[in-house]
Amino acid sequence: MTKRERIDQDVLHRRAQVAVLSGLARGDDVHDLVAAAAPTHVPGWFTPDLALLELAVTALDLVCPSGAEPLEYEGLRERCLPEVTFRGRVAHRNSQYALYAAACMRGGLQPDLLSDAGWWQTPLWQYAVFAVVIYSRAAAARLPVPVGEIARQIAASRSLELTA
């Protein structure tokens, strides 16, 4: 019996980004986006937390370029992700963490993702998908352009080719 060959982590990183952005550009629903990123999560080898938070950072750059009016956090999840209900304190805190982690990264502070979220029952990368969607929808509303265009702009800024 042979062990399955491990895929390079850089390849998985880009696959996660392409999967989520391609789905966002097509207009897939948020649960389909989570499902699209799932194959890149290889327990014990790779988790797409950082890959997806990087997309959220880029979306946040689009919604709040330097000197722009700050994005209001209060009610952001309800406005930009109404189809997801965060039940209980843990789900609220986890989704808040993903939004805050992207903002920290944008500001130059790298959060300790493994220590902060490595033990969560629902992995951080799933909440990072929500953060990508929230910040992308906020950017689309503010610019105003379709969410698919925001996804294409994020992909272009990261040199990613989206799939059909």
Score class of each variant (00 low, 15 high):
E5H: 08
R6A: 09
D8A: 10
V11I: 13
R14G: 01
V18E: 04
V18P: 04
S22L: 02
D29C: 14
D29H: 15
H31A: 15
V34T: 11
A35M: 15
A36H: 09
T40Y: 04
V42D: 00
P43Q: 03
F46Q: 01
F46P: 00
F46T: 02
T47S: 10
L53W: 03
L55K: 03
V57N: 01
A59G: 15
L62C: 08
V63K: 06
V63D: 03
C64H: 12
G67P: 08
A68K: 03
P70N: 15
P70R: 15
E72Q: 14
G75M: 08
L76V: 14
R77I: 13
E78D: 13
E78K: 08
L81Q: 09
V84I: 15
R87G: 03
R87A: 10
A91R: 06
R93K: 12
N94Q: 15
S95N: 12
Y100D: 13
A101C: 08
A102G: 06
L113K: 06
A117T: 11
A117H: 01
G118R: 07
G118N: 04
W120E: 05
W120I: 00
W120P: 02
Q121H: 13
L124R: 04
L124Q: 06
V129W: 08
A131I: 04
Y135N: 10
Y135G: 09
S136Q: 11
R137S: 12
A138Q: 10
A138P: 03
A138W: 05
R142Y: 05
R152V: 07
R152M: 08
A156T: 03
S157V: 00
S157K: 09
R158L: 11
S159P: 01
L160H: 02
E161T: 11
L162Y: 03
